[in-house]
């Protein structure tokens, strides 16, 4: 649906984004993870057609956006809506804000009012409709901004750090409302976050961005599993390829397991420990994403990534092709 090809973007001569391809297909749930300054917000602004890349092409439904611009730059933009990291509301009431996108599309006043009431109800904003934007808390502003973006029913919703202004409860409510919205109507979501938890919760397609490039070391260690029923308090064992991973959880049924790369202990041989998950394999890759931290990928039946120090790599003599043992506790495995 929306695709970037050969995109390079510069600010003051410095390349801040460099992507050979990046596509958002209809109905996709993409999470872009990366540290602050990794280029996530720039990428979202380009996807939202608010910035033109210095080089490369943006295609909407296979057609270059530049071909669609003669109708007006707003024509292609009306397919994609961005909610910024710290969204702003226009002066005026919450109801004015919710109806803004509809009014600029020339929707009749009665229809605007109806749609505003509906979206307000779905996002639990009905009691706030008469409030002025400056009277809202940060969490409420965030919720209004997301509801305002969805009121125009975009094909793609771009969310930049949607949970940053909200506490956990508010973030949970927001995610719940988004999930309900997706049940009501199919649209793609592309969410940028520096919190892996948000990415795990949302994305079925997680892409890592580092220094403006898609990182080959993805925050993987993500596995879709079927958790069995088990007695409360007992360890559960989930099949992941040829591995059986021990997990502490009370959930059962379909789930996503996330093993934080920093919670994996790497050794040359099996050592007695409290770790319930110990897998031997071969190192396939060493990547240095930031100074001092090395991402070690090993094939232990599936690819697992661990983050260790440069000193540990040296002490253990880790190198591609060499053996390694990856160990992590059952309680370190996160379940979503």
């Amino acid at each position: 649906m929306l695709e970037l090809r050969g995109v390079r973007h510069r600010y003051n001569g410095r390349v801040v984004l460099e992507l050979d391809t990046f596509s958002v297909t209809a109905g996709a749930q993409i999470a872009i993870v990366g540290h602050n300054g990794s280029g996530k917000s720039t990428l979202l602004r380009i996807l939202a057609l608010l910035e033109r890349p210095s080089e490369g092409e943006v295609l909407l439904d296979g057609r270059p956006v530049s071909d669609l611009r003669p109708q007006g730059p707003w024509a292609p933009r009306r397919h994609v809506t961005l909610v910024e990291q710290q969204p702003v509301l226009f002066r005026g009431k919450v109801s004015d804000n919710l109806g803004y996108g509809l009014r600029v599309r020339g929707v009749r006043r009665s229809a605007v009012n109806q749609r505003v009431a509906e979206v307000a109800e779905r996002f639990a904003l009905t009691r706030l409709l008469g409030r002025h934007s400056h009277e809202l808390s940060d969490g409420e502003v965030q919720r209004v901004a997301v509801a305002r973006a969805l009121a125009v029913e975009p094909d793609i919703l771009l969310l930049d750090e949607p949970a940053s202004a909200a506490d956990r409860a508010a973030a949970h409510a927001l995610y719940h409302a988004l999930a309900e919205e997706r049940q009501r109507r199919s649209f793609a979501i592309c969410l940028a976050s520096h919190q892996l938890e948000d990415a795990y919760r949302w994305g079925d397609d997680i892409r890592a961005l580092a220094e403006g490039r898609l990182s080959p070391v993805t925050p993987e260690n993500l596995f879709r599993v079927e958790l069995p029923e088990a007695a409360v308090g007992a360890l559960k064992h989930a099949r992941v390829g040829p591995l059986t991973i021990a997990v502490v959880t009370e959930r059962s049924g379909p789930a996503i397991l996330a093993i934080p790369a920093t919670d994996i202990v790497v050794s040359k041989e099996r050592v007695p420990s409290s770790a319930r998950n110990v897998f031997a394999g071969r190192v396939t890759r060493l990547a240095r994403e930031r100074p001092g931290a090395v991402h070690v990928t090993a094939d232990v039946g599936v690819d697992l990534v661990a983050v260790v120090s440069e000193e540990a790599v040296s002490d253990l003599g880790l190198s591609p092709g060499g053996g390694a043992v990856f160990a992590f506790k059952a309680s370190a495995v996160r379940v979503f």
């Binding site: 602004r45 707003w74 933009r77 994609v80 809506t81 961005l82 226009f90 803004y100 599309r105 973006a149």
Partner: peptide, 9 residues
């Protein structure tokens, strides 16, 4: 940017 992303000309 907000006006533009909401479809304003």
């Amino acid at each position: 940017r907000t006006a533009q992303t909401l479809g304003a000309g």
